[in-house]
Amino acid sequence: MATAVGLPTQEKAHVTVVGQKQHWYTSLPLHIVVILISVIWLLPTVALLFTSVRNVQDINTSLWWNLLWQPHQFTLQNYQQVFGATSTIGMGQAFLNSLIITIPATLFPIIIAAGAAYAFAWLKFPLRNTIFLTLVALQIVPLQMLLIPVLRLFTDWGLTGTFPALWIAHTAFGLPLAVYIMRNFMSGIPYDLLESARVDGAGEIRIFSRIILPLSTPAIAAIAIFQFMWVWNDLLVALVFSGPNSYPMPVVIRSLVGEYGSGWQYMTSAAFISMALPLAVFFGLQRYFVSGLTAGSVKG
């Protein structure tokens, strides 16, 4: 991001003659377009945030940006109504459920995939490459292909509607991609490193935990962020496998939309609560965030 390879135009050739000031005038339309696009892209999120902190009368009688010159409209009562302890909407419980679902559903696939990735990258066993290629191919299978039989299995085992159902489903569905990314990363680790450890008498488990895992941190971070975002934001898997005791936020928001088609005060504040954590992750870990989403872009 830092290296500006760009500016491929005559501007560069003319710099020595005209100097920097020329740019400012000639590139004014460019700045207008870029700033306009940025504003358009920011506007919807800001509209949601502003709407969520106005009371229902204000929302229904004047557009959200009136808050800018009427700051006295600011109120947190919508958040109390959807998030508070006495709320009938129960976003507080849904937020907890989302956490209870997402944390294990992010950790399990990382731990399980790391082991498998090590085996595929550095251990020798029959059909190793065939199995790995099958794994690669499985990434294209749409979730829709898995839902019906897995629901039948879970119903048979009495798991449907429970947290373990969601942990197991998200872990299994996330594995092919996680194994693939980590295996590719781990096979880039220099062989000499492993060999000398083996010569020194280290066992496979020791090599894995002391050398491979620490060196794989970038891949693990990318997968962790991708999987976290995927599970946190997931609606489809949750609709099929969660129940009244385990509904995560997207399911609750969706039913809010169904029940209160124009209850903007509820929908906007609930939606913003669900966005808060991913946005914090985004701004906190932007570099890993981008690489994580890039790595996982094929999933679904």
Binding site: W41, L42, P44, L48, W232, A271
Partner: peptide, 16 residues
């Protein structure tokens, strides 16, 4: 930024 937002929340945003 919208990449960080769930499609569910984005749905609410665009309904609005």
């Amino acid at each position: 930024v919208p990449m960080a937002i769930s499609a569910t929340a984005a749905g609410v945003i665009w309904r609005l």
